[in-house]
């Protein structure tokens, strides 16, 4: 794939979604291999589908990344490496991993791969990015709720690519730091080709993953007194309006969340960000359909 200054990286949870993403201008897509990604079977591809996707990408000069973003148990590492080897031979360009051990193992075994530290690695500051860089990462994913100034400060310290998840759902608990679902329900499940997965563990799910308990209403008690019924706060983050500021800050890879998105929802999303990147590359401030959308003041680093 030809190297672009900015890469638009789109999710694809099916062959149709992959077609839609490429058709709308994604430079690369990320996909999950059944049983080996956070997000569950619904958004994962079989090995045959992976081959098809890689062939489509090869034919159109685009890239495919594998979201291998669960933490493999010691006995699973070998199998994951075997899958990676086969996929690299078919033209896999990048892989997204979810912990320091996997990152180093994969980057050492496959120096030709663009190894990226998943948003689940929890990188938030320049120290994090430098840490993953030292382990061999060639990109680190940052959450889209950071400010452009934070990204610029991080980018100034690192020589690897900064991947910003510009379109994502920000749940109450930070990605990669949530053990709530498994506290309430942990269900071992056997999956095709992988063995036992602990459904309910966000980091090690593989099937069904998190039970989204944070999206249900909860009663808030002060001692034994019920004070309120409420949802945990969550918000849709979409940095389309200030994408230019992020690109000015040095973002290399514009990443969209949503392997579960159907093609008809994915297509306009990819189109919108493609247009925004193109506008920025053409020297325009931002596309005419967009205004900056600052995050609400409560969502700040110090809490108020």
């Amino acid at each position: 794939m030809a190297v672009r200054r900015v890469t638009l990286l789109a999710p694809a949870g099916s062959l149709k979604a992959a077609h839609a993403a490429f058709a709308e201008g994604a430079d690369a897509i990320y996909v999950g291999l059944r049983g080996w990604s956070r997000g569950g079977q619904k958004g994962e591809l079989s090995r045959d589908e992976m081959k098809d996707v890689l062939e489509i990408a090869r034919g159109s000069g685009r890239g495919v990344w594998l979201a291998a973003n669960i933490i493999p148990k010691p006995e699973e590492r070998k199998r994951l490496m075997g899958h990676l080897r086969a996929l690299v031979a078919l033209g896999l360009e990048g892989v997204i991993v979810n912990d320091a051990g996997s990152l180093r193992d994969v980057s050492e075994a496959f120096p030709q791969l663009l190894v990226s530290a998943s948003v689940g690695c929890g990188a938030l500051n320049e120290g994090d990015v430098l840490f993953y860089e030292a382990l061999g990462a060639r990109a680190v994913v940052l959450p889209g709720y950071l400010d452009p100034s934070e990204v610029a400060a991080i980018k100034a310290k690192t020589s690897i690519q900064v991947e910003l998840m510009v379109h994502m759902v920000q749940q109450f608990v930070q990605l990669g730091k949530c053990f709530m679902p498994s506290y309430f329900r942990l269900r071992p499940s056997r999956t095709e080709d992988v063995g036992v997965r602990l459904t309910g563990s966000v980091k090690r799910g593989g099937v069904g993953v998190c039970f989204s308990i944070c999206q249900e209403p909860w009663d808030l008690y002060w001692g034994e007194r019920k004070m309120d019924r409420r949802l945990f706060p969550a918000q849709q983050v979409s940095r389309h309006g200030d994408l230019g500021d992020f690109l000015d800050a040095g973002v290399d890879i514009v990443k969209l969340q949503g392997r579960s998105l159907p093609p008809e929802m994915l297509a306009p999303l990819v189109r919108r960000y493609r247009a925004a990147i193109d506008a920025w590359e053409d020297g325009l401030d931002r596309p005419v359909d967009s205004e900056p959308a600052p995050l609400p003041p409560m969502w700040t680093a110090v809490g108020r």
Partner: peptide
Amino acid sequence: KMPLGISDYCFLLDY
């Protein structure tokens, strides 16, 4: 009490 999560948001400020 076992830590289960960390957030950027303090929803207690709502109260």
